[in-house]
Amino acid sequence: MMVKNMTNNVIEVTSLMKKYGDFIAVNDISFNIKKGEIFAFLGPNGAGKTTTVEIMECLKNLTIGTIKILGLDIRKNEMEVKKKIGVLPQDFNVFEWLTVFENIDYFAQMYPAHVDVDTLIEMLSLTEKKGTLFKDLSGGLKQRVGIAIALVNDPEIVFLDEPTTGLDPKARRDVWNAIKELKTRGKTVFLTTHYMDEAHFLADQVNVLHNGRIIAEGTPEDLINNHGGGNTLIMRKCSANAKNEIIKVIPDCEIEGDDILIKLPEEDGMKCMSKALSIVNRNELACEEFYVKKTTLEDVFLNLTGDKLS
């Protein structure tokens, strides 16, 4: 394991295990989160994301392991921890017959110290919806109210469990911007998601979770470089003799219909690419289009598990 600067860690999870009856939902996971970073748990349905987050939020009991939040053992300092964290639970809901303002105010009053409700409403661009009943809000607005409520106590750490699941692209963007904004305010964000683009766009650190275990960790770029299997050169709509020539020179290429897919090795991807192109050039073969497809976290996941993410 990498040696981390201990004073910088706001969350330290060590050998965490959670059993529901005999079923092991989270299996011996450990990770640290540094102050000010956006940390993402990426994994498919049932991976154990919510279970882990809810244990950190003191909502569920752990079976084995220790969790320290801001240096406090969560089992011994539940109340202290609750005052310092903000939470957006999965499938977030609050009081349906209260307005946006009233709901935020309700939760603000639950804390001994809280931020001004109107300031929060402005920060999340909810001013126009201030007087709307929660039950009448769209999904994206509900999530934004949820983020506002997660911030009422000016928490040092914010937990967001699948903040954009089920939202349309515009609403997702809005929520993403709100999350980026948290980072600029110096908050540490713990995020769970099963969207790789979300993890890629937002996260500084990603842990890939599968069947209750962490199967990979690092920055999005690291993960792609280490587990993505490299970029792929794609040559589309090639003639038959083009395909024949290329397969002679680069035997491990893949032919899909009239398309040729060439995996680019990390070390000499450029060399491989120019080799393919020169064959086409030299023999005046016909291919309509060339491009390089970058690997995504989706590929990382596929490579690690043989499963699709979502």
Partner: peptide
């Protein structure tokens, strides 16, 4: 069932 308790239980209430 709609999850309000889950939210409430993360507060000091």
């Amino acid at each position: 069932s709609i999850g309000v308790f889950r939210k409430l239980s993360t507060t000091p209430l």
